[in-house]
Design a protein around this nucleic acid. Structure first.
Lengths: 192, 192
DNA sequence: CTCAAAGCCTAGCACCGCTAGACAATCAAG
DNA sequence: CTTGATTGTCTAGCGGTGCTAGGCTTTGAG
């Protein structure tokens, strides 16, 4: 039986390698450069091996997205836990979110821009995605204001951050004033 | 000379046909379905003809984006001009923006999501793009609040709308609460 | 030792964006 | 009216894409 276990382990290890390699390649050269051929070559297996782990490229994107969601949740919680007031927590959250998006553009795309075949805002939404939203909710719920549903407020705040992140990265907004925009956004949206 | 003029007219007409067909196809089946082969077939010319009008698919996307920017500016101005108070104008603007995005998803993508080879937020930004931003600025500048740069405020408001539009359309936000989110956003961001 | 199962690869499909080069229509010059 | 060059358009093809069928080799149970 130990032989089968070893094989299972090796298989799981290879799956991690695929996801890590796809992510690396995407961060280096963009998702367009992540082709099944290049990916197969980098992991030193043939293309069909990829399809024994994932249904297709879409699922690989989804796997990177889930990994990224977990990391984003960690980053957001780390930033907010170091702040002392609700106001500071929200500002720290906003900075951490945008920082994550800027430092991991490919992962961010996998999460919120590309189709990774994942369900969002549903019962069957994968746990990492729910938890990433929960991480936002924890700090944003504090400043939703009276009579405002914390979930709804979190969605609006999140959407605003998402807009800033994507428009900035695609050159629609100049990066120079990024800090000022965040400040304005936090000032106006958060009720402290 | 009249013959050359006629040819020029026919050529311009065919260019409009290409852009209109690309847009139509994109709205019907998404930009992925807009291939040079399909596009060529629909306009009843061969593929190379496309390349005598545009450098490539990217430029066709850019042409659709410019067309869309002009239409969006019209839609926004129409909505805001019917409102009587600054607060109402901003609410109308937000609704009109999101409505445009929802009704013309492919055009919206061409404008703000895809690479159409256009310059944004620069001196050499095409006029329709500058004017679409100006249309937002006209109503949003009114409610930026004291000491807040109208342009910066417009960028933030725009980014928030963009976040709502894109996250909703890609299934990251449920459409049910869309109206409530807009209301909350306008309430908080606009200083009246 | 046999033989089925599992694992992996080569080769190929239909499609993509884009372009070279052949061919036909057009028009100015002789 | 006849050249000859220019313009317009097409067919065919290049190197790439995601994905899969089918065969070969290795493995491990009986």
């Amino acid at each position: 039986m130990s032989v089968q276990e070893r094989k299972q382990r090796e298989r799981a290890e290879r799956e991690r390698l695929i996801v890590a390699t796809a992510r690396e390649l995407a961060e280096q050269q963009g998702w367009d450069a992540v082709t099944t051929r290049r990916l197969a070559e980098r992991i030193e297996y043939s293309q069909p091996v990829l399809y024994s782990h994932f249904r297709g490229k879409r699922e690989i994107i989804g796997a990177v997205a889930l990994e990224g969601a977990a990391e984003m949740a960690v980053a957001v919680r780390a930033a907010t836990s170091a702040a002392n007031s609700p106001r500071e927590r929200v500002a720290a959250l906003a900075r951490a979110y945008l920082d994550f998006a800027a430092r991991n553009p490919a992962v961010y795309d996998a999460l919120f821009q590309l189709d990774g075949g994942l369900a969002y805002a549903q019962e069957d939404t994968p746990e990492p995605l729910k938890d990433a939203f929960a991480a936002l909710l924890e700090s944003l719920g504090e400043v939703a204001g009276d009579g405002v549903h914390p979930g709804l407020f979190t969605e609006v705040f999140w959407a605003s951050l998402h807009g800033l992140a994507t428009l900035t990265r695609t050159g629609r907004l100049l990066p120079e004033d990024a800090a000022q925009r965040v400040e304005l956004l936090v000032d106006r949206l958060a009720v402290v």
